[in-house]
């Protein structure tokens, strides 16, 4: 069984660089693997361990400038290989910088068709930086395949995927023939952690880098990202537990919360 997993290099939410005017400085913010894409890889690795076959990672670099981001991007791909993927195919192209899932799904669908045939495609439920919740559904349209989104449990039986979808008000169990696409939630598994040593060991696995060969549609947008900041008092109470409890109750009374 051949599996394709899609991994986004997202802005690192714990290292966001903010300029003095509250604007997010993308150029100085590092990128890392999007949180739930680790679950996507993990699920792929588990299925590969069970059913054999090849596990291939796809990614399009969407944040620039490319020279400042390529080291992080490379490290992310190595991490995926260390987790158990066999090879990585990456789009790195000026024309893909600052794009959304609208464009990246088209570019990656074209790359997938070039690389080979797959029985299953796995993505994260949403990327942690831009969270557009679209990539898997769009990819389904471009590859003309069925898609099951928000999967928190997955089984394979006789060439069929049986999946539990985690929706707002209900859990659904659905069934679908492969090939198909699934997006997985953060609850589907516990991603394994890899050591720096294992990442280095993955060095012998191939990473293939591509430019885009033909133009893809792209909308022109101007954008800015501004931090939401709400001022807080940031008082930390110090003292014995009893003293601190009394201070807290006192503060809640003073604030008019407790009467």
């Amino acid at each position: 069984m051949n599996i394709a997993v899609f991994v986004k290099a997202s802005l690192n939410l714990s290292m966001i660089y903010i300029d003095s005017d509250e604007k997010i400085n993308i150029s100085r913010t590092p990128i890392v693997i999007s949180e739930y894409d680790k679950n996507a890889i993990e699920e792929g690795v588990r299925l590969k361990e069970k059913y054999g076959g090849k596990l291939v990672v796809f990614s399009a670099l969407t944040w620039g400038p490319i020279d400042k981001k390529s080291q992080d991007f490379e490290r992310m791909l190595r991490e995926c290989l260390a987790m158990g993927a066999d090879e990585a195919h990456a789009l790195i192209d000026e024309n893909l910088i600052n794009i959304s899932s609208y464009e990246s799904s088209i570019a990656l669908a074209k790359l997938v068709n070039k690389v080979g045939n797959f029985n299953l495609f796995i993505t994260g439920e949403g990327s942690m930086d831009t969270s557009s919740y679209q990539f898997a559904s769009r990819l389904a349209s471009h590859l003309n395949l069925p898609v099951i989104t928000f999967v928190r449990h997955l089984e394979i039986e006789e060439g069929k995927i049986i999946a539990e979808r985690d929706l707002e008000d209900e859990i659904q169990v659905v069934e679908c023939n492969m090939p198909c696409i699934v997006s997985v939630t953060g609850e589907i598994n516990f991603p394994r952690t890899v050591s720096v040593k294992q990442i280095l060991q993955a060095k012998s696995k191939p990473i293939l880098r591509y430019n885009i060969e033909e133009q893809i549609p792209r909308i022109e947008v101007d954008f800015e990202i501004k931090q939401i900041s709400i001022k807080r008092k940031n008082v930390i109470f110090e003292g014995s537990i009893e003293e601190v409890a009394r201070m807290l109750v006192g503060a809640l009374i003073k604030e008019g919360i407790l009467k």
Partner: peptide, 29 residues
């Protein structure tokens, strides 16, 4: 913990020790 950056009032303590004391304090009040 990052939560303290977003808090007006912070208590650095083990919840298992602190909550019983806070509960007692509130009951007294």
């Amino acid at each position: 913990a990052p939560i303290f950056k977003y808090a007006d009032y912070g208590v650095v303590a083990d919840l298992y020790q602190f909550l019983p004391v806070l509960i007692k304090e509130l009951k007294n009040m």
